[in-house]
Amino acid sequence: MADAPVHLKYTTDHEWVELNGDIATIGITAYAQESLGDLVFVELPEVGITITSGDDFAVVESVKAASEVYTPVSGEVTETNEELGDSPEMINENPYTDGWIAKVKLSDKSELDEMMTAEEYQEYINQLEA
């Protein structure tokens, strides 16, 4: 499994967030995609909607499971990864880059402070697997 990149922040529900200015890019982690297996469909949020930290805003589906993706941050969805429509496998292949799900214009940057660092997340996964 790919190591969690150090420049990202993580949640206990296995989402990651990358911050660029006041825009947060959200995706799911390598651990998440691996436990889900081959993804076959991604339901993306509508661009323009406002989401609040803790909302389920997207769904990733494998053959036998559908999992909600929860946003760890609040704000307006400014862009979604339309390519996932035809190629949901991008999440399996490159969860931290091409497999991003949505970009959100943050209303409260401090929400990121509550998220885990790569090191903490790695530790969290190790505990789960133990």
Partner: peptide, 12 residues
């Protein structure tokens, strides 16, 4: 497309 169905999606 089973994820639409009750045995996977339950109340959703």
């Amino acid at each position: 497309l089973n994820t639409r169905e009750q045995h996977i999606r339950r109340e959703k």
